[in-house]
Design a protein around this nucleic acid. Structure first.
Lengths: 167, 167
DNA sequence: GCAACAATTGTTATTGTATAACATTTTATG
DNA sequence: CATAAAATGTTATACAATAACAATTGTTGC
């Protein structure tokens, strides 16, 4: 998760080392699950790994395809149950505007979900702007509305794709 | 659309006169369509009316049910095409987190979509907080991200439902 | 009016997203 | 090791959205 000032450096570029971030995500998940005494079972681990390794948001059926073994792919409910667990633990976020899922870059801290989503390359940057969070909570409070969850999804063009379009 | 300071008054209460807001929404839509020289055809009008009369966000198939005549309900594509038109004209917003649709309270002004959604009664309040919009744009700019559309959907409990739960 | 074209609607089929209900297996606990 | 809880397997279905093409309706210029 990036704060806004370093955002420009942190938007995932096509060539960054995604394998190592996937590894650290899995490691962190294992540690946190041990702490919380919940089980990161094989299926759950498998789903998290697929999502973490993906450069872009992954749809549930895309994940299913990648889970396919010699006997074909598992039933959809398998992946949805794993996703439910992973989301409950904060390891994965759901992007409502894409019906897709991405690994959380910072699963420790409980935070609102705020995303920049490139419509071209589908890269996703999670960010956390305190001003934004505060504005939402103030707005809710003014309406006597008690907030459970906030969804902020901004779609547009990432810098790399914008450059590519101008060529 | 409410600004934040008057939000508390404007969150739709269970007993407000929704019929009259539906009427004024339809009237406005007719006027705007005439101005723009686009056609508010029977199907489109019908879909808008159903959405406008609904106290809560309406799913596409819920709308279909309400469109059903003696010959059964129309094909899904009918309602989706009407929704495409109504969204293009700014009369209806889509709530990504619910896969549902609500009438826009202020179709004139072009604005980002910001919603408070009660998880209990499914009432929806559209609001517009300039601070929030600004924070999003600043964040995007810091990431050299050019924004097409922003979605802010806050789910929680509205004041009425919160009161009801404490009883 | 009417030919030509554009916009809208109708029809059928299909793809994608997600959950329900219930059976079976695996894991934790006394 | 018996039992309960958690997780997975299986089958079926509901809900969401679009594709492809045909038929109809509306608009425009002649």
């Amino acid at each position: 998760m990036a704060n806004l000032h370093s955002a420009i450096e942190l938007f995932p570029t096509p060539d960054h080392d995604h394998h190592s971030c996937a590894a650290s995500i899995l490691e962190a998940a294992e540690r946190i699950c041990a702490e919380r005494r919940v089980r990161l079972t094989e299926k759950r681990r498998q789903v998290l790994e697929i999502i973490a390794k993906s450069h872009t948001a992954a749809g549930a059926y895309e994940i299913l395809e990648k889970m396919a073994g010699p006997k074909g792919r598992p039933a959809p409910v398998i992946v949805y149950r794993a996703l439910d667990f992973l989301m409950a633990q904060g390891f994965v976020h759901r992007l409502a505007s894409l019906n897709a899922f991405i690994a959380c870059a910072n699963p420790q801290s409980d935070h609102g979900s705020q995303f920049l989503i490139c419509r071209d390359c589908r890269a996703v940057m999670e960010f956390s702007n305190p001003t934004l969070g505060k504005a939402i909570h103030e707005g809710a409070q003014a309406a006597s509305f008690s907030v459970d969850a906030t969804m902020v999804e901004v779609s547009g063009l990432c810098a790399a794709c914008a450059r590519a379009q101008h060529e």
